[in-house]
Each structure stands twice: as structure tokens, then as C-alpha cells.
Amino acid sequence: METLAAVLVSVIGAATPLVFAAVGELVAEKSGVLNLGVEGMMLIGAVAAFAAALTTGSATLGILAGAGAGAILALIFALLTLTLLANQVATGLALTIFGVGVSALIGRSFVGIPLQRLQQLDLPGLSDLPIVGTLLFGHDILVYLSILLIPATIWFLDRSRAGLILRSIGENHAAAHALGHPVIAVRYLAVMFGGAMAGLGGAYLSLAYTPMWAENMTAGRGWIALALVVFATWRPGRLLLGAYLFGGITVAQLHVQGFGFDVPSQFLSMLPYVATIGVLVAISADGARARLNAPGSLGRIFHPDA
């Protein structure tokens, strides 16, 4: 049982950065903006969080720096695609290339320095319970935040007026504009929220999951988060499920050799990527269902003149 609990805890660890990054992207996409720069924003978030936590000694400042850095990078994306009407796919790719370079540049003096792992919340009594204590009450603040983010996002998108406006803009920006909704302003905010969440996902990686900085430490998680949004058919609840499924695959990959299967490690490391392709195919094959919740204006340039 103890081993099982340990495995489940590492699943949570592997899933949490995906939850953050994917929820952020989901909200941005619901407003009609496809930002392929998640990987770059996560990396910037990771290095900024690590640098801030190391130099100030405060994990809280680290978390805020991660979110802030992700949002700033997202602001560049928003400026290019929303104000200067650049192609969203190309700009997103540029954002990732830029983020990889800048994070390596900032992080060069931090490589190999260990950092104190993000403190777990100590809930008196509860955290000491056997198994249940480790599973439910032994996590750091970001894990709880990522879980709370899901009902909060559902409430925002489905129940709040602001969420309704955001969805209407994503569905048909020309109609929303005609109704007087501020298309560009809402999209700026949604994209920056996406950036902040990707930054938090990165911060979780460099502060808690593996408390250190290494170049390209996200290893494609930003892209997996993008695939998760499609997998979840733009629904936050399914997103959580998907992220934990992927967390499970990532962790299983580490444990397979422990169970005595003689498979080269490289093939095991391929699993999350192959699984991503698998779920994309499974979801996309039924076109009607895949498009049911997809925002109608996703990826299209909005220019009121045209």
C-alpha cells in the first residue's frame, strides 16, 4: 500500500504542470485564440520561478515570478496576433523558439544548483494519517491550486457573465463585436491568463517536481498540454481527467523497469508522446464530437474593418 501511495503521489506531481498549462490554453482557445507557444511560456515560467526563489529565498515570490513571466511572454503573443494581426500559428511557434532561447540565456548561471523543494502544506492531524494523509493532505499549495482551478474555470465559463461573453467572442467574433463586446480586450486578458497558467505549470516543474533548472526541462509538456485541450474537447472536467491519465503514463514509464520488464529506457520514454498521438487520433476520428465544443473562431484573425 505504501508503494501504491508513493506511485499515486508521483502521478499527481506529473499531472499538475499539465493541468495548469492546459487550463490556461483552454481559456485562451475558448476566446478564439490558438497560442502554440505554451512550451515557451512554461520554460520562461520555470526559469523565472527558479531564479526568483533562489535569489530571494521565497517560494511565494518564485511562484508569482513564474506566473508573471508567462503572462509577459503571452503579452508579446497578444500584441503580435491581436493588434498587429499576425498569423497565430506562426507567432506561437516563434514564441516557443524564443522562450527556449531566452530561458537558456537567463538560466545559464543556475544550471546544477539545487533548490529547497516547495514546502508541503502541513495540515495538523490530517497529514499524519496513514496513506490517506500522504495521498490527500501531503501536497504543496500548487497542487491544491491546480485542482481548485478546474471548478473555478467551469464556473467562470458556464455560469458567469464574463465567461459567457468570452465564449461568445470565441464562437463568433464578428457577431460579438456587433453586439458591442470588446473582442480584442477580452482576448488580451484570456491570452495573458493562459500565459500566467503556463508559467505556473513551469514554476511547479522547477520549484516542486524537480527543484532545479535545466535547459528544455519541460520536455514537450507544453505541447502535450495543447493536445490535452483537444482531448478534453474544450471541457475543463475532462481536462483534469486527461492530465492525470498522462501523469499516470509518465510515472508508469519510470516504474516498468522496476517491475522486471526488460525494455530499453528510450522506448519507455516514448510512451507519453505516442499516447498523445493515440488520444488525438481517437478524439479527432469522430469529427462531429470533436468539433462540438470547439470555438468557432479559433485561430482566425479579427479585424473589424474586414
Binding site: 494581426l85 499576425a86 527556449v100 532561447g101 479585424h303
Partner: peptide, 26 residues
């Protein structure tokens, strides 16, 4: 200077190209 400078340069170049591209169509 770190080798990553090349990546930053390449990323910036693409950003500025995409940004100035607005002048082609508008």
C-alpha cells in the same frame, strides 16, 4: 556569451518579421 544567444536572435527576428508583416496587407 552562452550559445543560447543564437536562439534568442532567431526568435526575435521571427517576432519582428511577423510584427512588421502587418504592413504588407494593411
Amino acid at each position: 556569451l552562452p550559445l543560447a544567444v543564437a536562439g534568442v536572435f532567431q526568435g526575435m527576428l521571427l517576432f519582428f518579421l511577423l510584427a512588421t508583416d502587418v504592413l504588407v496587407r494593411y
